[in-house]
Amino acid sequence: MSEPTFTLDGREIPFAAGQSVMQAALAAGVFVPHLCYHPEFRPHGSCKLCTMKINGRHATSCTTPAAAGLEVESDTPEIQDKRRTLLQMLLVEGNHFCPSCEKSGECKLQALGYELGVLTPHFNLLYPDRPVDASHPDVLLDFNRCILCELCVRASAEVDKKSVFALAGRGIRKHLIVNAESGKLGDTDFALTDKAAQVCPVGVILPKKCGFCVPIGQRRFDAAPISQHVDEFKPVAIPGERA
C-alpha cells in the first residue's frame, strides 16, 4: 500500500502517522518558516510563522496533524505577506540591533527576514527596557532579543531537568525569567553544556568569551539562505514523546 499523501502548493507530500503538516513538508524537503519549532521538541505553535491555509482555513501547520487528502497552501503571496507582518511584529516588539549581536548571521529571526524580504520593521518600534543579565560566569542573557519561543524553557525542563527558565507576565509584558529568587542566572544551576544553552533561535543565550568568533561570510546563513538549510529541520524522534 502506498503512503498517504496531502497536497502542498500543488505538490504531493507523503507523511507518516503522527506527523504534523509541517513535519511532513520538511521531511519532503519543503522549507517552512518557523521560529518556535525545533525538530527535537514537541510542537509549540506560538510564533505562528508556519501558518498555512489548510483546506481553506488558516492553521498553524506545526500543530495540525497531517491527514490524507488535505489541500494545503503555503507559498502564496497572501500567506507570505502575513508571515512578513509577523516577523515585523517581532522586530518592533524587542530591541533587535543586529550590528552589535554575536548571533548575527546565525540568527533564525534575521535569516527569515532575509528569506521573506523584510526590509523594514514597518510598525512603530516599542523599544522595551530589558536589562541584560551577566551574572553567570559562562553565559550572558540579553533579553532584548527574546522572541518568547520558549525553546529554552522547554529544553531546560524536558532535557536538562532543571527548569532554569520560565515565562512571567502577560500579553505584551510577557518576559523570560530564570529560576532564582534573585532573578539572576548566576544563582541557578545553569551550565553552558545544558541543552537550553544550545537552542535559542536568536541571540538571548550567549556563551561568554567567544563573541563574533566566526568571521562574516562564514556564518551559518551567510553562504546559503535558511530555506536551503531545510535538512537541518527535518523531524527526528523526540525524546520522551508519547507514542
Partner: peptide
C-alpha cells in the same frame, strides 16, 4: 530603518 545604534 530602525533607529540603529543611536536608538540604543
Amino acid at each position: 530603518v530602525n533607529g540603529g545604534l543611536p536608538a540604543q
